[in-house]
């Protein structure tokens, strides 16, 4: 699995209540990094890092 197709997959995210991992959608998880020193977000699927990105994809809906 690569990052690019994931960023283009329409998704609705739910809040987890965890500061460092604030959003989840099924087995997909978002980690917030030390932005701006690091990329804003990392996508994890099944606890495996898929990739980093800065800007929230327009087709992903935040809660």
């Amino acid at each position: 699995m690569t990052l690019e197709p994931c960023l283009n997959t329409p998704l609705s995210w739910a809040r987890t209540g965890q500061g460092e991992f604030p959003y989840a959608a099924g087995n997909w998880l978002i980690r917030i990094n030390d932005f701006p020193a690091e990329p804003m977000y990392t996508l994890l699927v099944d606890n495996r890092e898929i990739g980093d990105f800065d800007d929230w994809p327009p087709c992903w809906i935040k809660p």
Binding site: L3, E4, L7, P39, G51, D52, F53, D54, D55
Partner: peptide, 8 residues
């Protein structure tokens, strides 16, 4: 270096 600031 790996992703650039615009990975997509």
């Amino acid at each position: 270096e790996k992703y650039g600031s615009k990975p997509a």
